[in-house]
Every structure is written in C-alpha cells, then in structure tokens.
Design a protein around this nucleic acid. Structure first.
Length: 288
DNA sequence: ATCCAGGGCGGGT
DNA sequence: ACCCGCCCTGGA
C-alpha cells in the first residue's frame, strides 16, 4: 500500500492527548516526537499536530481523507455540543475545559466488543498488552515504513483459537468469555451488521448483553465507543461513580451509591448527550 | 505483602 | 431486584 497524507488547518476540538488518553481506545501509542501512531481496521496511521494543524500520514484502506473523517468523527460539531453541555453547570464547564479536545472515535464494532470484554476488572497497560499479543498472533500483517504492524484479528482469524491459548496470551479469567463471544458471533447468534442498522438503542443493548463477558458497563462502552455511536448511554465504572458522587450525590461511601441513582441523575442532567458528558467527567476525574 | 485495576457471573437471599 | 464472593494477572 502507498503512503498517503492529509492535513486539516484551523481545526478545533481536536487534541491528541485528549482523544487517545481519554480511555476509549487501546491501540494508539505516543511516539518520541509527540505524535501518536495507531492501527485501526486496515489502516496504520500517524497523527501529529503543529499549531492548529493536524497532519495524518500512513497507509489506508481507501482514501485517507474519507478514512480520517469517518474515524475521527469530523463531521460532528463538538463546539456546539460543548457549548450546550457547558450550560448545565460549573462542573460540566470545568470538565469540558479540561478535556476540550476529546472526540469519540468511530471504532470497529467487533474490535470494540472484544477490547471491552478484556477491560473487565483490568488495568490499561495490561489491556493494551493483551490486545497487542492477540493482534500479533492472529491479525493480518501490514508493512509500513519498514516496520510490521498487525490488524486486530477478525472473528474468522480467531475461529480455531482455544481457551487454553487465550490463557497463555494472558487473558486470565476472560479467556472463556472471548472464546464464547467469538463463537456466538461466528454462528450469527448475534449479528453485528443487524446491530449497526437497528436504531433502537435498548434493543441493541439487550442483544449485546447476551454475549459472554458483556454486562451493563461493557455494553454501554460498546454502544458509545464503537460505530454504534449511541451518545445517550452512560457507562458507569469506578471513576464515574466517584465523580458523580463527589459532584452530585455526596454519599459518605461512594460504593454504596446505586447505579440507578447515578443513571437517573445523568439522564436528568445530560439527556441524550449523557455519553459525552460521561467522557468529559471521567477523563477530568481520572487525570486531573 | 496485600491490594487493586475502566466488571461479569453464578449463586445466594 | 439486590447482594456477595470469586475470578487471572502483574504492577505498586
């Protein structure tokens, strides 16, 4: 494949650190020169920012401009969204100022499902390690700049991989979950293309919940961070529980705050932008 | 050493 | 409906 380049001048709501470190993705890594490099679908990309210009460079499956516009959600008006959310209260305003460059990536549904199954009760360095080993072992190779990169394995790539093999790759107790979910998708027990087409978020959520290793939190992450792009969901993890309790609930023991309670407040305050609000709050509370 | 990290599952009430 | 213990692994 031939190297392509694409640049956007005077871009807003686009900060590399905010996008790649806000917890939505696992295959982007910061380089020595401050740029980020990542593999998604059949693309290998390097992204860097100089002033208000973003430069994308790499090998793409198709036209780089189209690939980038789709993946980085460039047709959505984040300035408008941020303005609306900022009006809600000072907490939102502050968290948005902190994560002003966040964009929700349009990630492959299958990859997002598997990645967040792996994320369960796990830490980020280890999650990234597991995903890299899966890709190196079972993903298709792409050569770029004299280096080898590996696509995330497809369901077919994982067809004959055993539970034991997953355990060897360091998945721990998630081995069986990955095995079973892959099998269910290969057997079309859950049809990913149908999910993409279904506008009813709750139906899609129910369907995701039938997959092994997918509970409420993982399902919501998949709905928000994959190409399903449902911004009304509100994934609740320990950090979100923490920040929601600090700001709005103020219970002495945050672990005692129920999910329902948090969901109710999120819906009342943030409505159909709850997912975005969650992301700003999460990133702010974890990093700041 | 003990704990915990972006939960889910299965088996209790 | 809630609640609880348990689940691999590795880094602090």
């Amino acid at each position: 494949m031939k190297e392509q380049m694409y640049e956007i001048k005077n871009i807003n709501s686009f900060e590399l650190k905010d996008i790649f470190d806000c917890g939505q993705c696992f295959r982007w890594n910061k380089q020595e020169d401050g740029s980020y490099e990542g593999v998604f679908k059949r693309n290998v990309l390097n992204v860097r920012k100089e002033g208000n210009t973003v430069i994308f460079k790499g090998v793409c499956d198709g036209n780089i401009e189209e690939v980038v516009k789709d993946y980085f959600d460039l047709n959505r008006d984040y300035e408008k969204i941020k303005n609306n959310l900022s009006k809600i209260d000072d907490n939102m305003k502050k968290s948005i100022q902190y994560g002003k460059g966040i964009r929700i990536l349009n990630q492959d549904l299958w990859e997002t499902i598997i990645s967040f199954i792996i994320s369960a009760n796990n830490n980020i360095p280890r999650i990234k390690g597991i995903i890299e080993r899966l890709s190196e072992n079972y993903g298709e190779e792409i050569d770029y700049n004299g280096k080898k990169y590996y696509m995330f394995p497809t369901p077919e790539n994982l067809k004959d991989v055993s539970v034991e093999r997953y355990r060897e790759l360091g998945l721990g107790f998630r081995d069986i979950r990955l095995y079973e979910t892959t099998k269910m998708i290969l057997e079309n027990k859950v049809n990913l293309e149908e999910l993409e087409k279904n506008p009813n978020t709750m139906e899609v959520r129910e369907s995701l919940l039938t997959l092994s290793g997918v509970g409420p939190k993982v399902a919501d992450c998949i709905l928000l961070f994959s190409s399903l792009k449902r911004f009304e969901v509100f994934p609740i993890d320990v950090w979100v529980r923490r920040v929601m309790n600090d700001l709005y609930i103020k219970n002495e023991d945050e672990t005692k705050v129920s999910k329902k309670q948090i969901e109710k407040i999120a819906k009342e305050k943030f409505g159909n932008l709850a997912g975005l609000a969650q992301q700003y709050l999460f990133y702010w509370r974890r990093e700041a």
